[in-house]
Protein backbone atom coordinates (compact mmCIF):
# COMPACT_ATOMS: atom_id res chain seq x y z
CA UNK A 1 0.00 0.00 0.00
CA UNK A 2 1.41 3.35 -1.04
CA UNK A 3 0.60 6.79 0.39
CA UNK A 4 0.87 5.52 3.95
CA UNK A 5 1.20 8.95 5.46
CA UNK A 6 -1.93 10.10 3.70
CA UNK A 7 -3.80 7.05 5.06
CA UNK A 8 -2.60 7.86 8.56
CA UNK A 9 -3.72 11.45 8.34
CA UNK A 10 -7.15 10.38 7.16
CA UNK A 11 -7.32 8.03 10.13
CA UNK A 12 -6.56 10.97 12.43
CA UNK A 13 -9.36 12.90 10.80
CA UNK A 14 -11.75 10.02 11.41
CA UNK A 15 -10.78 9.89 15.09
CA UNK A 16 -11.38 13.61 15.51
CA UNK A 17 -14.79 13.36 13.90
CA UNK A 18 -15.59 10.51 16.25
CA UNK A 19 -14.75 12.88 19.11
CA UNK A 20 -17.09 15.47 17.59
CA UNK A 21 -19.82 12.84 17.58
CA UNK A 22 -19.15 12.20 21.28
CA UNK A 23 -19.38 15.92 21.99
CA UNK A 24 -22.69 16.14 20.19
CA UNK A 25 -24.05 13.08 21.98
CA UNK A 26 -22.93 14.19 25.41
CA UNK A 27 -24.19 17.68 24.69
CA UNK A 28 -27.68 16.40 23.92
CA UNK A 29 -27.70 14.01 26.86
CA UNK A 30 -26.29 16.42 29.41
CA UNK A 31 -28.31 19.46 28.41
CA UNK A 32 -31.61 17.59 28.57
CA UNK A 33 -30.63 15.90 31.84
CA UNK A 34 -29.68 19.27 33.33
CA UNK A 35 -33.10 20.55 32.37
CA UNK A 36 -34.86 17.54 33.78
CA UNK A 37 -32.89 17.58 37.05
CA UNK A 38 -32.77 21.37 37.17
CA UNK A 39 -29.04 21.05 37.66
CA UNK A 40 -27.33 24.38 37.02
CA UNK A 41 -23.79 23.07 37.34
CA UNK A 42 -24.44 20.38 34.79
CA UNK A 43 -25.86 22.99 32.45
CA UNK A 44 -22.75 25.09 32.85
CA UNK A 45 -20.51 22.19 31.86
CA UNK A 46 -22.15 22.45 28.44
CA UNK A 47 -20.59 25.84 27.78
CA UNK A 48 -17.07 24.52 28.26
CA UNK A 49 -17.85 21.57 26.01
CA UNK A 50 -19.08 23.96 23.34
CA UNK A 51 -15.71 25.73 23.29
CA UNK A 52 -13.89 22.42 22.98
CA UNK A 53 -16.04 21.24 20.12
CA UNK A 54 -15.61 24.59 18.38
CA UNK A 55 -11.84 24.22 18.47
CA UNK A 56 -11.99 20.59 17.42
CA UNK A 57 -14.24 21.46 14.49
CA UNK A 58 -11.87 24.19 13.33
CA UNK A 59 -9.02 21.69 13.52
CA UNK A 60 -10.94 19.17 11.43
CA UNK A 61 -11.74 21.83 8.85
CA UNK A 62 -8.12 22.90 8.71
CA UNK A 63 -6.85 19.36 8.39
CA UNK A 64 -9.39 18.57 5.69
CA UNK A 65 -8.39 21.65 3.71
CA UNK A 66 -4.73 20.77 4.04
CA UNK A 67 -5.26 17.21 2.84
CA UNK A 68 -7.38 18.44 -0.05
CA UNK A 69 -4.76 20.96 -1.11
CA UNK A 70 -1.70 18.78 -0.71
CA UNK A 71 -2.96 15.29 -1.51
CA UNK A 72 -5.53 16.21 -4.14
CA UNK A 73 -7.79 13.36 -3.09
CA UNK A 74 -10.21 11.71 -5.50
CA UNK A 75 -12.94 9.07 -5.32
CA UNK A 76 -13.50 7.60 -1.86
CA UNK A 77 -10.73 9.71 -0.36
CA UNK A 78 -12.35 12.87 -1.66
CA UNK A 79 -15.77 11.77 -0.48
CA UNK A 80 -14.33 10.80 2.89
CA UNK A 81 -12.46 14.04 3.55
CA UNK A 82 -15.24 16.34 2.39
CA UNK A 83 -17.79 14.32 4.36
CA UNK A 84 -15.72 14.39 7.53
CA UNK A 85 -15.59 18.18 7.29
CA UNK A 86 -19.33 18.34 6.75
CA UNK A 87 -20.17 15.88 9.54
CA UNK A 88 -17.98 17.82 11.92
CA UNK A 89 -19.70 21.09 11.01
CA UNK A 90 -23.09 19.50 11.52
CA UNK A 91 -22.16 18.19 14.95
CA UNK A 92 -20.82 21.60 15.83
CA UNK A 93 -24.27 22.99 15.02
CA UNK A 94 -25.77 20.33 17.25
CA UNK A 95 -23.47 21.46 20.07
CA UNK A 96 -24.58 25.06 19.51
CA UNK A 97 -28.19 24.03 19.94
CA UNK A 98 -27.42 22.12 23.13
CA UNK A 99 -25.99 25.34 24.52
CA UNK A 100 -29.35 26.96 23.91
CA UNK A 101 -30.99 24.13 25.84
CA UNK A 102 -28.54 24.61 28.71
CA UNK A 103 -29.40 28.31 28.75
CA UNK A 104 -33.02 27.38 29.22
CA UNK A 105 -32.03 25.17 32.16
CA UNK A 106 -30.44 28.23 33.75
CA UNK A 107 -33.60 30.26 33.20
CA UNK A 108 -35.99 27.63 34.53
CA UNK A 109 -33.98 26.10 37.39
CA UNK A 110 -35.24 28.48 40.06
CA UNK A 111 -38.77 27.22 40.26
CA UNK A 112 -40.27 23.76 39.82
CA UNK A 113 -40.77 22.49 36.28
CA UNK A 114 -44.18 22.92 34.73
CA UNK A 115 -44.45 19.16 34.34
CA UNK A 116 -42.22 16.11 34.67
CA UNK A 117 -40.29 15.62 31.44
CA UNK A 118 -41.06 12.43 29.54
CA UNK A 119 -41.17 13.05 25.82
CA UNK A 120 -38.26 15.50 25.71
CA UNK A 121 -35.81 12.94 27.21
CA UNK A 122 -37.16 10.42 24.68
CA UNK A 123 -36.33 12.81 21.88
CA UNK A 124 -32.83 13.16 23.30
CA UNK A 125 -32.43 9.40 23.59
CA UNK A 126 -33.51 8.92 19.98
CA UNK A 127 -31.00 11.50 18.78
CA UNK A 128 -28.24 9.70 20.64
CA UNK A 129 -29.15 6.47 18.88
CA UNK A 130 -29.06 8.27 15.55
CA UNK A 131 -25.61 9.68 16.18
CA UNK A 132 -24.44 6.17 17.07
CA UNK A 133 -25.82 4.87 13.79
CA UNK A 134 -23.82 7.52 11.94
CA UNK A 135 -20.67 6.71 13.86
CA UNK A 136 -20.97 2.97 13.24
CA UNK A 137 -21.57 3.56 9.53
CA UNK A 138 -18.37 5.58 9.31
CA UNK A 139 -16.36 3.04 11.31
CA UNK A 140 -17.59 0.01 9.39
CA UNK A 141 -17.94 1.77 6.02
CA UNK A 142 -21.40 0.20 5.77
CA UNK A 143 -24.74 1.87 5.12
CA UNK A 144 -27.06 -0.87 6.40
CA UNK A 145 -28.37 1.09 9.37
CA UNK A 146 -28.60 4.49 7.70
CA UNK A 147 -32.15 3.74 6.52
CA UNK A 148 -33.28 3.52 10.15
CA UNK A 149 -32.51 7.22 10.55
CA UNK A 150 -35.67 8.13 8.67
CA UNK A 151 -37.85 6.22 11.10
CA UNK A 152 -36.08 7.71 14.08
CA UNK A 153 -36.40 11.18 12.68
CA UNK A 154 -40.12 10.57 12.16
CA UNK A 155 -40.38 9.48 15.77
CA UNK A 156 -38.71 12.71 16.89
CA UNK A 157 -41.14 14.73 14.81
CA UNK A 158 -44.06 12.85 16.33
CA UNK A 159 -42.71 13.46 19.83
CA UNK A 160 -42.32 17.13 19.02
CA UNK A 161 -45.96 17.35 17.93
CA UNK A 162 -47.01 15.61 21.11
CA UNK A 163 -45.02 17.98 23.30
CA UNK A 164 -46.39 20.93 21.37
CA UNK A 165 -50.00 19.89 21.82
CA UNK A 166 -49.51 19.11 25.48
CA UNK A 167 -47.88 22.45 26.22
CA UNK A 168 -50.59 24.22 24.28
CA UNK A 169 -53.25 22.78 26.61
CA UNK A 170 -51.28 24.07 29.60
CA UNK A 171 -51.13 27.55 28.13
CA UNK A 172 -54.80 27.62 27.24
CA UNK A 173 -55.87 26.42 30.63
CA UNK A 174 -53.66 28.80 32.55
CA UNK A 175 -51.97 31.74 30.82
CA UNK A 176 -49.55 32.11 33.75
CA UNK A 177 -47.79 28.98 32.45
CA UNK A 178 -47.01 30.61 29.10
CA UNK A 179 -43.47 31.56 30.09
CA UNK A 180 -42.46 28.12 31.30
CA UNK A 181 -44.32 26.32 28.55
CA UNK A 182 -42.62 28.42 25.90
CA UNK A 183 -39.22 27.53 27.32
CA UNK A 184 -39.99 23.83 27.07
CA UNK A 185 -41.44 24.29 23.64
CA UNK A 186 -38.19 25.85 22.54
CA UNK A 187 -36.26 22.90 23.91
CA UNK A 188 -38.45 20.50 21.96
CA UNK A 189 -37.99 22.64 18.88
CA UNK A 190 -34.20 22.58 19.25
CA UNK A 191 -34.24 18.81 19.61
CA UNK A 192 -36.42 18.48 16.54
CA UNK A 193 -33.90 20.52 14.58
CA UNK A 194 -31.03 18.45 15.95
CA UNK A 195 -32.86 15.35 14.72
CA UNK A 196 -33.01 16.84 11.24
CA UNK A 197 -29.34 17.74 11.26
CA UNK A 198 -28.30 14.28 12.42
CA UNK A 199 -30.50 12.59 9.80
CA UNK A 200 -29.04 14.76 7.04
CA UNK A 201 -25.59 13.93 8.33
CA UNK A 202 -26.52 10.28 7.81
CA UNK A 203 -27.50 10.99 4.21
CA UNK A 204 -24.11 12.57 3.63
CA UNK A 205 -22.38 9.54 5.16
CA UNK A 206 -24.39 7.35 2.81
CA UNK A 207 -23.02 9.34 -0.11
CA UNK A 208 -19.50 9.02 1.27
CA UNK A 209 -19.75 5.25 1.40
CA UNK A 210 -21.68 4.51 -1.79
CA UNK A 211 -21.10 7.55 -3.98
CA UNK A 212 -24.86 7.87 -4.30
CA UNK A 213 -26.96 10.70 -2.96
CA UNK A 214 -30.04 9.77 -0.99
CA UNK A 215 -32.79 11.99 0.22
CA UNK A 216 -33.66 12.07 3.87
CA UNK A 217 -36.78 14.23 4.28
Amino acid sequence: MVRNRFQKEMEELRKDVRKMAEHAKNGVETSVLSLKNQDVEMAESIFAREDESDILNLGIDDRGMKLTALQQPVARDLRFISTMMKVSDNYERVCDLTVKIAEITLKTAKKPLLKPLVDIPRMAQTIIEMIDINTMAIEKWKVDEIGVLNEKDDLIDALYDQVYRELLTFMIKDPRTIDDATHLLFVARYLERIGDIVAKTGARIHYMITGERIWIK
Binding site: V2, R3, F6, V74, A75, R79, T210, G211, E212
Partner: peptide, 18 residues
Protein backbone atom coordinates in the same frame (compact mmCIF):
# COMPACT_ATOMS: atom_id res chain seq x y z
CA UNK B 1 -14.98 8.30 -12.51
CA UNK B 2 -13.06 10.58 -10.16
CA UNK B 3 -15.86 11.05 -7.66
CA UNK B 4 -17.47 7.64 -7.50
CA UNK B 5 -15.69 5.03 -9.60
CA UNK B 6 -17.61 1.79 -9.97
CA UNK B 7 -14.67 -0.61 -10.03
CA UNK B 8 -12.39 -1.25 -7.07
CA UNK B 9 -9.31 -1.34 -9.32
CA UNK B 10 -10.12 2.08 -10.72
CA UNK B 11 -10.55 3.44 -7.24
CA UNK B 12 -7.32 1.90 -5.97
CA UNK B 13 -5.44 3.30 -8.93
CA UNK B 14 -6.76 6.87 -8.90
CA UNK B 15 -6.45 7.16 -5.13
CA UNK B 16 -2.83 6.07 -5.34
CA UNK B 17 -3.27 2.75 -3.55
CA UNK B 18 -1.30 1.08 -6.31
Amino acid sequence: LFESPADKRTEDYITGRF
